[in-house]
Amino acid sequence: MQSIATFLTYLSTGIDRVLRLVALVGLVLMVGFIALQVVARYGFAAPPAWTEEAARYAMVWVGLLGAAISFKTGFDPRLVKLPVTLPRPVLALAALLRGSAVVVFLGPILFYCFYGPGMNPARSFLARNLHTTAETFDMPTIFVAITVPIFIIAIFIHGLAHCANALVPTQAPAKTPAKTPAERETNAPDHA
């Protein structure tokens, strides 16, 4: 149990680091594409046609990976914050319910990333996006679609790591990246 918890924490932290880096690059690209679009319109003879679509795709990356990072940080707004003074069984039940909301919401979406009509993987969401291309440049949309399973899997791993650590309360959890005070905010405890 102990080693599983350590491993999951390690994995969750590592994934979070990578996603933060990719999302950051995505955001910078977004600004870059939009700026290029403005400059090109007034500066170039024939402005590139792909800037808008590329910026939108970068936003999908930023938005979905951002969702996983926000989950890990515990930033997502909630309506009710349970007092920690409640009896342990109540808190455990609440944690179970929070976890079930995450799994019920994202589980089917993840499933249909890999399976299509008639349980056929060849007609899954990802497979369909192998056959469609972007409108203004020659790129299969799979490079955008792939963010959907990535962000869901990341959220599931973050949730599992959190559960595992809750079950092994004596051991201090492995190091998580330092959070700025602004990030900690009001919603600091995790979801699952």
Partner: peptide, 14 residues
């Protein structure tokens, strides 16, 4: 963009 440029216009994608 391609054919509008061929007309001599300045196309912009919106």
């Amino acid at each position: 963009v391609t054919f509008m440029s061929a007309w001599g216009a300045k196309p912009t994608v919106v």
